Amino acid sequence: MQDWYARAVRLRFQVFTGTPYAHVSPMEWRIDPGALRGIAHSRGYLEIAPMFQGCLSFQFAPQHVPPVPVFDGPDRPDKDRERWLLNHLTGSEQVWVSLKHANLSARRVAELAETEGLRVAAEFADPNDRVLLLSRDPSPPRLPLPAPTGFRFRYAWLNNIAPVTVFVLLSAAAVIVGMPSGHEAPIVSLLFMAAFAGAVPAAFTTGLFPRTTRVGWLAREFDGSPHVEFAMRSYQMPADLVVQIAAYHGYELYGQSATQAGGPSLKFYKRV
């Protein structure tokens, strides 16, 4: 099931990309022809007579098969959200913005960005959100990205650091409180219980940050490393958007894994 999911996502965003024609072998992709037709339809493709043996052929025909509409924020004046966006943009060279979080339309975000000298360099969308990359230099990155040098902090690590920190601090507090009396007091038991209970929500620390912040952290994962892997819960962004952002940085999805503790993870490799 996990491999099927990865293949389906790759088909949506690496094959049915808006090119005039797409030819896909169900056997090669190990995907049911019915599911393949559904994926093509959702991307605005119409099935045509096969052009190659063993393949299904599709033509991009959004006028006949409208693709699933993408998200856009409300296109109306909102002084509070516009002020927030301008504060977010001021002095920045590059900014990632989630329209779902900004609660503004793509048109309005682009207009406000221009007042700060930024333009839309790229956009990534699905039915539930649209992410804009605003930059003073809107040219696409040179691919493949160079391999990173030196240490670079990954914000996904916060979900590991925070629960350990909570557990250690509360456990230490319990020990310190219990030391003078030499025997276990009710407050000591409560502190130990809080240490265990607090470590669980702390494992989702990144989810406490705004969506716009998280998408910027997500983009930093694609830093030129040969392979990138992270748990979906780290940034809580839909896989469709993640794959599009990865492709912009020269990465392709090749698999998915899951653990009971960490949940599903996506695996990417850098195209060379």
Results as ranks from 00 to 15, higher is better:
Met193Trp: 09
Arg119Cys: 14
Val272Gly: 15
Thr115His: 12
Ser225Cys: 06
Gln244Ala: 03
Gln2Cys: 08
Val188Ser: 12
Glu123Lys: 12
Phe153Asp: 10
Arg30Trp: 06
Ser265Gln: 09
Asn160Gln: 07
Val120Gly: 09
Leu86Thr: 12
Ala203Met: 13
Val131Ile: 15
Pro67Tyr: 06
His249Lys: 11
Leu89Asn: 05
Glu229Lys: 09
Tyr248Gln: 10
Glu114Met: 08
Ile39Asp: 06
Lys267Gln: 09
Tyr21Gly: 09
Arg37Ala: 15
Phe71Pro: 14
Ala246Leu: 00
Asp129Gln: 11
Pro186Tyr: 03
Gly117Ile: 02
Val68Asp: 02
Ala106Leu: 03
Arg43Gly: 08
Leu99Tyr: 13
Thr17Met: 02
Val109Asn: 09
Ser181Asn: 14
Trp217Ser: 04
Thr90Gln: 12
Asp3His: 13
Val166Arg: 01
Val164Arg: 05
Leu56Ile: 04
Gln260Glu: 07
Pro74Arg: 05
Arg211Phe: 00
Leu112Ile: 08
Pro210Asp: 07
Arg30Cys: 13
Ala258Cys: 10
Asp80Leu: 10
Pro62Met: 07
Pro62Ala: 10
Val97Leu: 06
Phe167His: 06
Ser92Val: 11
Arg37Asp: 13
Gln236Thr: 11
Phe16Ile: 01
Gly216Ile: 02
Pro66Trp: 01
Thr90Glu: 10
Leu134Trp: 00
Ser25Gly: 06
Gly38Met: 07
Arg220Met: 04
Glu221Asp: 13
Met193Ala: 15
Gly250Met: 10
Leu208His: 08
